[in-house]
Computed example of a mutant assay.
Amino acid sequence: MTSSPTSRRAEYAEATRAAIVDAARRIFAEQGYFATTVEDIAKAARVAPATVYAVGGGKQGLIGTLVDLWSQAPIVAETRRRGAELTDPDEILRNAAATVRSMREEYGDIMRVALATAPHHTAVAEGLRVATGRYREAVLALAERLHEVGGLHPGRTVRQAADVLWFYFGYAGFFTLVDDNGWTFDQAEHWLVRQAAVTLRSAP
């Protein structure tokens, strides 16, 4: 059975969009947002510059798409579902840390571009604000779950625990250990889990 002209057009449109998004992601990571031009993206995606604007919304639309791709990744919801099933605090923390590590490996390039660009670009800053809100919401849910299963020091509030978790598993932890210090992801993940567990169970 052959596909209809309509379905073929839809497939072509989606393939074109994917090529543009992939090209933007690669070039933003290599050159930075401001040094990248729509013409650079069009050339890499093998489309006309007008198509980049029409399909991707230009540079601004594309970086917004990339930030959403990262901050709404399905693995986040799956991690929260899995965490709700676990009852051992150490397992819950390891489950979350594995996801943070996976997100760094999969979307770290997008995070770096957004973090570097946001201070100088209002729209990117707004996109990062929304993404960070989603991230912090997930961290707060993790703190609440650890509280429910007795994974916190009795004197530590959920809000304090969320702040501790953000310190270890927010943007800086993996980037500092892996990018700046040259640790492997394995080393960074295991160290962060150990340190977070000790801090969460210590008196505030």
Rank of each mutant, 00 (worst) to 15 (best):
M1R: 04
S3K: 12
S3T: 14
S4R: 10
E11G: 09
Y12K: 15
A13P: 09
E14F: 15
E14V: 15
A15Q: 13
A15Y: 11
A19T: 02
A19V: 09
D22F: 07
A23Q: 01
I27V: 14
F28A: 05
F28T: 04
A29E: 13
Q31W: 01
G32W: 07
Y33V: 12
F34N: 03
A35P: 05
T36Y: 04
T36A: 08
T36E: 06
V38P: 04
E39C: 15
E39W: 11
I41F: 09
A42D: 01
K43W: 04
A44Y: 11
R46S: 15
V47H: 11
T51K: 11
T51F: 03
V55Y: 08
G56K: 06
G56Y: 09
G57V: 12
G58M: 07
Q60N: 15
G61I: 08
L62C: 02
L62Q: 02
I63S: 06
I63C: 06
G64L: 14
L66I: 06
V67W: 00
W70Y: 12
Q72P: 09
P74K: 05
V76N: 06
V76A: 13
E78R: 14
R80P: 05
R81T: 13
R82K: 14
R82C: 13
G83S: 13
G83K: 00
E85D: 10
T87G: 07
D88Q: 08
P89M: 00
D90L: 15
L93M: 09
R94C: 12
N95K: 02
N95T: 13
A96F: 08
A97T: 06
A97D: 05
A97M: 04
T99C: 08
V100I: 14
S102D: 06
R104W: 13
R104D: 05
R104G: 02
E105F: 07
E106I: 13
G108C: 06
M111R: 13
M111H: 11
M111G: 05
R112T: 08
V113Q: 00
V113L: 07
A114K: 10
A114C: 08
L115C: 11
A116K: 12
H120Y: 15
H120G: 07
V124E: 00
L128V: 13
V130F: 03
G133S: 10
G133W: 10
R136G: 00
L140Q: 12
A141I: 02
A143P: 03
E144Y: 07
E144N: 11
R145G: 03
L146A: 00
E148I: 10
G150H: 11
G150L: 10
G151N: 03
H153E: 01
H153R: 00
H153T: 00
R156C: 03
A161T: 02
A162M: 03
D163E: 14
V164R: 00
L165M: 10
L165C: 07
L165Y: 04
W166K: 14
F169Q: 03
F169T: 04
G170M: 12
A172D: 07
G173Q: 03
T176P: 04
L177A: 09
V178E: 03
V178P: 08
D180F: 15
N181G: 11
N181Y: 12
T184N: 12
D186M: 01
D186K: 12
D186H: 11
R194H: 10
Q195Y: 12
A196G: 11
A196E: 01
V198D: 05
L200C: 08
L200W: 01
R201H: 09
A203Q: 09
